[in-house]
Design a protein around this nucleic acid. Structure first.
Lengths: 148, 148
DNA sequence: TTACAAATTTGTAATCATTACAAAGTTTAA
DNA sequence: TTAAACTTTGTAATGATTACAAATTTGTAA
């Protein structure tokens, strides 16, 4: 799916973030790559067309977007934060074998929390285990990547 | 609550882990400190009585226990894994202001996943936001710690 | 346009949790 | 007793993330 700079600027505006070339590029990447990329995935990919891009800018932009609720940060793999443009809330499944992260509709679950002790900002649900591709006991092939 | 070495050895045995002085100490710490400590919390605390203890041993023991299902590792704070001896499954709430992590009974939620695509090993549910202590808008005091 | 302040980006140098690894110590079982 | 297997220890990487200051870009008022 293509996303114009105007579309993307509108999303930024809604999050009260001024559009810059770098911020548009990062958000566009997330819109067009729904594979839950890491900072490094994003940085390396954008660097090809934008060699002056700094890793720090990617970090700054991602945390800003996440803070304003425009994207989600997923702490689903130890030591590697993944990012997700999430139109509607959903859960995730991460395969321990191949590392792939799948989206799970939240209709399967009901995870509201009404507890007077807390003012809830975010709900995070994730599962880990083995995906079907990796579960076949006859298969000896183990693939390790995040793109599926 | 006190826990004898025998009690703790029984938990280790159930997880098919041989008891050693170090492993018993780490597991005992988790049993007696239900505050979701980090590796460093555990290491620093145990070091007082056990000066020869190595941080690597604490890591090895915690991952071994988590791998065998005897304890939970919580990726609830970026860059700092917390650990939890969990008798029965429950969710967590982490306050963004003070860092405290609270237990939430899972009766509030229903998070089973029956999806033919996946063989589920673990279910992780956590909330973030502001806890009641920190939510008072008149309070100017911001405390940053994990022990509550 | 010019000038200046504010915001943003960049690159480098820390920081810090975690892991790798090999040497030393301990346990087990024949 | 002995050797293999297991465990612990300490040190040295690794690698994601952050701090920070200089450079660049943007917005705005004259």
């Amino acid at each position: 799916m293509q996303h114009s700079a105007t579309d993307i600027s509108a999303i930024l505006a809604k999050a009260d973030i001024k559009p810059s070339v770098q911020r548009i590029a990062v958000l566009r990447y997330l819109l067009e790559n729904r594979c839950h990329p890491t900072v490094d995935d994003i940085y390396r990919s954008l660097s090809v067309e934008m060699p002056s891009l700094s890793r720090t800018t990617v970090y700054n932009t991602l945390w800003l977007l996440a803070e304003r609720g425009a994207i989600l940060s997923l702490d689903i793999e130890r030591g590697n934060t993944h990012f997700d443009y999430a139109e509607c809330p959903h859960a995730h499944f991460r395969c321990n074998k191949c590392g792939a992260i799948y989206d799970i509709p939240l209709t399967h679950t009901c995870v509201g929390l009404s507890d007077a002790r807390f003012h809830v900002d975010s709900i995070n649900v994730y599962y880990t285990g083995t995906c079907k591709k990796c579960f076949n006991p006859n298969s000896k092939i183990k693939i390790q990547n995040n793109q599926h």
